[in-house]
Every structure is written in C-alpha cells, then in structure tokens.
Amino acid sequence: MLNSVIAGLTSGGVYALLGLCVVLTYRLVAVVNFSMAAVGSMGAFVMVTLTDTGLNAWLALVVGAVAGAVLAALLGAVLVRWFGEHDERTKAAVTVGVYVALMAVGLRLFGNTTSGARRFPAPFDAPAFTVGSVVVPQSVLVSLAFAVLITVGVGLLLSRTRVGLRLQALSERPSTAQVVGIPAPRLAVAVWAAIGAISTLVIVLVAPRLGGDFSTLGKLINTALAVAMLGAFRSLPLTLAGGVVLGLLEGLSASLEAIQQYRGIVPFLVILVLLWWRSRGEIWDTAHSR
C-alpha cells in the first residue's frame, strides 16, 4: 500500500510538471502547445548525446536546456510573426504540425522504442529516506519540489514583478497591452524560450524512469494535456494538485487486486468525471474565462 503511494507520488510529480508546462504556455501566450514534450525531448537528447561523448552532465544539461529554449523560441517567433492574427485553433494546429515533424526527425536521429533507449543520467536515484520498510527515492522529492517551485515561482513572478504584470496584461487583452507600450512579440518569444528550457528539464527528469527513448518521451504530451485539463488550462495550483492526485490514483489502483489490470484507465475516468463536473460550471467558471 505505502509502496504504491510512493510510486504514485513519483508519477504524480511528473504528471504535474508536464501539465504545468502546457498550462503555462496557454496562459501566457494563449497557445495549446502540442509540441511541448517533443521540444523538451529534443533538448533532452541534445544533452544525452553530449554526455555520451563524455561531457560533464551538468554542463550538458545547460546546453540541452538552451537547445530546447532556442527550438521553442523559433516556434514562438513563427507563431508571432505569421500567425499572430489567427485564432487559437490555428495556432494549436501549427504546434501539432511541429509535433509530427519533430517526432519524425527525432526517431530518425535517435532511434525508436527498441533501438533508441538512451542512458540518461539519474542523479536522484539514491534513496532520500525510508518510511518503515519503503524506500523513498530522491527523484520523488525532486519532481514534487520542482513542480511546487514552478507553481509558486510563476505565481510570484506574475503578481509581483513588472514583467509578470505585463505578461498578465498581454494574456488578458493582447491588443490593448500593445496600446500601452508592452512589446508583445518580444515578450512572447521570451516566454516560449523559457518554456522550452523548462520542458527540457522536465523531460530529463522523467527520462530515466520511462526508458529514455525519444518516442515515449515525445508522446508524454498526451498525459500533459490531460493534466492541463484538470487545471482548466488556467490554474497552476489546480494543475499541480490534479497531477499529483492522478499519480496517486494510478498508484493505488495498482495495489488493489480487483482493478489492477485496469489501472491505465483510472486517470482517464477521473478526467472524464471532472470534465463532466466542470461542464456543470462550478469552480471553473472564473478559472476558465480568459
């Protein structure tokens, strides 16, 4: 039981991180970003390619994050430059296109599920502490802490700093924001770059647990979008909580004999129920109006 709670927490932290990246993109630049995990995977594979050649892991991580940032910034610049006037659906479609292209390129460069698994460095595999007989690895704490850090940090950035206020203004009224002198295109590209870097870090963090092949990592976007939905694509704390709860449910259902075989379906059912609840318009009313 306790074992499965720990396992659930590990997945939960990861789910939360993935969802947060999607929600952040949507809140700040109003794009449902299907290419998030693929961009992060590109950055992650730049890193692992460098560590394979013997580069120091931390240095490689920085280079990988920069690569992820540049790739995302490029995508952001294209969206700002050529799709600025288009609606959210069109922009989402562009990111789907980019996702498909990146997956193809990634598979070609880095190999498929069977041939392409890389050994990602797993510096947080050591046990953090033990509860009774159960060992809690550091990675659980790291991913949870990272998720909390993003939630709290972005919250503070948005409400306490001038750049954050400008980002809020931009997401609320894009054209009026420009009317008051906010350099929208530059800010948007900067946001994209930051999200590219964060996505890379998230993917690097989860890669060791998931086998470390490009295809699996890039497809994490499915989970990410599902978790983002729990936060109504708006609320960071709800996304964080949603991700963790989802992970816990998965862990618990793995420990119960009766539903063990169906545990993959549990998150899906949870999302379905929540969406139905949301359509009844409770707490999401305010969260969803953007």
Partner: peptide, 27 residues
C-alpha cells in the same frame, strides 16, 4: 508596430473601457 508607436509617445483611450480587469488599479 503598435507598441513602438506607444513607446514613441502615443497614448490611446480605446472605445470600450479597456481596463485590464484582473489587474488592480495600481497594476
């Protein structure tokens, strides 16, 4: 572009009351 015109010294009070509703007055 619009924001550079603003930075060049152009203020614009648009037709509908375009406050940033979620920000405070001071923000």
């Amino acid at each position: 572009p619009t924001y550079r015109r603003a930075q060049a010294g152009l203020g614009y009070v648009e037709q509908s009351r375009t406050v940033f509703r979620t920000l405070t007055v001071e923000q």
